[in-house]
Simulated scan of single mutants.
Amino acid sequence: MSGVDRLLFPPPAEEKIYVERKPAGQKCPECDSEDVRRYPVANFIGPRMVTKCQDCFHHLATDVPAEDDHWPPWRSATLDWAASRAG
């Protein structure tokens, strides 16, 4: 790890690292639970947002992160820009 990496991504200060699972305001079609949440994951096809029931773990959706999701934290500022003729 170089000095620049340590400056940009210091080791976490918390003992446990977790992700906030925000309520999705939906009802699970499998178990009728109201505890359906949306949260970021690192997927094999890239960063995604998933919506899952927290009681039966039924998968409702997998989406590409929106700008408001702030996922991943290192997302490029030019990610949504159209490519130029130069590529």
Rank of each mutant, 00 (worst) to 15 (best):
P72K: 11
F9C: 07
W74I: 07
E67T: 07
P11M: 15
C31G: 05
R21G: 10
L7V: 07
C56Q: 06
R75I: 06
C53K: 00
L79N: 07
E15A: 12
C56W: 01
G46S: 04
D32R: 07
A86H: 07
Y39C: 03
T51L: 00
G87S: 08
H70S: 04
E20R: 13
G25H: 09
W81D: 15
G3S: 13
V4T: 09
V4R: 11
V4I: 14
H58A: 13
Y39K: 05
D80N: 06
W71E: 05
E14T: 13
C31W: 04
W74M: 07
A42H: 06
R48T: 00
P11E: 15
W71C: 04
R6W: 12
D5Y: 06
K16F: 14
P72Y: 05
R6S: 12
P65H: 00
G3L: 09
H59K: 08
M49F: 02
P65V: 00
E20Y: 11
P12E: 13
A83N: 11
D63Y: 03
P23C: 12
D63H: 09
G3D: 13
V41T: 11
P40T: 01
G25A: 12
V36I: 06
N43A: 14
P65N: 03
K27F: 11
E34L: 09
H70K: 05
A82N: 13
P40Y: 02
S76F: 10
D68L: 03
D68W: 02
R85V: 12
M49D: 02
P12R: 11
F9M: 08
R37T: 06
N43M: 03
E30M: 10
A13L: 14
V41C: 04
F44V: 06
Y39S: 04
V50C: 03
D80Q: 03
A24P: 05
Q26N: 05
G87D: 06
R38C: 03
G46W: 01
R75H: 06
R21P: 04
K16T: 13
G3C: 05
F44P: 05
D35R: 01
C56L: 01
L79C: 09
K16W: 11
V50R: 01
R21I: 07
G46P: 01
E15I: 09
A82E: 15
R37E: 03
K16P: 03
C53V: 02
D32A: 10
A13H: 09
L60S: 02
A24E: 12
A66E: 08
V4M: 10
C31A: 05
W71Q: 08
P12Q: 14
C53N: 02
K27L: 15
D68M: 02
Y18K: 08
K52S: 04
P10V: 10
R21L: 08
R75E: 10
A86G: 10
P65W: 00
L79I: 12
A86D: 14
M1G: 14
R85E: 15
P10E: 10
A13V: 14
Y18M: 09
V41G: 09
W74N: 10
V19W: 12
E14C: 08
C31P: 00
K22R: 14
S2P: 11
D69R: 01
Q54R: 02
D68S: 11
E34P: 02
S76D: 15
F9V: 05
C53R: 00
S2K: 09
T62E: 09
V41I: 15
I45E: 13
P29Q: 13
K52W: 01
F9N: 15
G46C: 02
D63A: 07
C53A: 08
Q26P: 00
T62W: 00
L60R: 01
